[in-house]
Nucleic acid binder design. Structure first.
Lengths: 209, 209
DNA sequence: CTGAAATAGGCAATAAATTGCCGACACCAG
DNA sequence: CTGGTGTCGGCAATTTATTGCCTATTTCAG
């Protein structure tokens, strides 16, 4: 299946067996995979082509995963990063999560679990959402408070819409907001319900998480 | 400014020896400590009195620390929470950090380290901005849109204040907001400039509600 | 086809936020 | 002490947001 909305992830691990196995698995599930066996290579790939998310081993021979993540964030400030590791210590995990990791998996990796995580990324960073996240989160300086708050509000509403499959009444209940207010906000913030729900029909529209 | 105990933390652990020892240590460092030996008691304390931050064991006989944290957040959505545990598994740590934990310490607790963490909390969630952000959109859905947006706005203002060392005029420029508006927001959101700029020295506690 | 349910938008009353202007207070250098 | 700077809050005019009421449109089951 060729899907225009499929994700491309950057998979980083020094163990080529693991790299190959996971890459194969993900590709059979319509996820584009770019592999790299070192942090150095990974950073190159990150600059060469479009990557939607990073899945990386925490422990690698030369540069460790955290260091790599920091470098990666310099290029792509808010790219979602998923770590995995076989012998993670608590401080490592804490550091990774503080960096804003979306998930931290243990080796050996359960492919289905990884797939679930990636699908979650697919949803929360979908299309217009990604732009919004950048708007309110990445550019720490230079944007007025009001604009950033509005961008966040837009992001929250779009997320809720996606999570409820475009079902407005559910969103109203979830966000506990007046129906008229929500409509006005969506109009003002340029949120198109139709566009959002059309986006998700191809993949999983329900994050059963 | 009141020079007495400016910060009150809620310390939760089923091990009474640990509870007593840490409480004593913290009290000698001018930190108010309310102790609870169970999640149930802790939730009561949380409603009875003003608590600035929670320090809790992850593993407790009856209810686990995560469950407790979720309940605590229902009462105090953005209260800083520090976890500690002796036998933490990776998924536990990940879950705790996703909940927006400020820090995750390992048992046995190094008192000085805990003190350092608490002092970071004292200047209002300093440091791990990413973690803080996760606390917003990683937090369970179920909080009204308005509350979440306000929480984010509060976070933005506090961050900017910290970043500019409490210089209001710099914050005004950075956030491009009217001075009168910023003052009003700070007042409404319970942001105390004095408390934020008081560096490692004790400042005012903030009755953040 | 018909009617119920879900969604969207117009309009107007009400509530809240924004902002300029004024004065007050603290602090510091001269 | 005095004047300058930075901060804070009261007040009121203006703007914006919220929300209830009403109607239109679409969708879908019967």
């Amino acid at each position: 299946m060729d899907k225009s909305d499929s994700l491309t992830i950057l998979l980083v691990d020094d163990d080529l067996d693991v790299l190959g196995a996971i890459a194969r698995f993900l590709r059979t599930h319509d996820i584009g995979v770019v592999v790299a066996e070192s942090a150095h290579t990974a950073l190159q790939r990150l600059q060469e082509q479009h990557i939607d998310a990073i899945v990386t081993d925490l422990r690698m021979p030369k540069s460790n995963g955290l260091q790599f993540a920091v470098s990666a964030r310099e290029t792509r400030p808010l790219i979602p990063i998923v770590f995995f590791s076989g012998y993670a210590q608590v401080p490592d995990v804490v550091a990774a999560m503080k960096l804003g990791a979306v998930e931290f998996l243990e080796k050996p990796i359960d492919p289905d679990e990884l797939l679930k995580v990636i699908n979650r990324v697919r949803i929360s960073h979908h299309g217009t959402l990604t732009t919004q996240r950048l708007a309110f989160d990445g550019l720490d300086q230079g944007y007025p408070l009001k604009m950033r708050v509005l961008a966040y509000e837009k992001y929250l509403i779009e997320s809720s819409l996606l999570q409820h499959g475009g079902h407005i009444s559910s969103v109203l209940e979830s966000l506990q907001v007046n129906r008229r207010t929500l409509n006005d906000k969506m109009s003002k913030l340029g949120i198109k319900r139709d566009a959002l729900i059309a986006d998700t029909v191809a993949g999983n529209s329900k994050p059963a998480d």
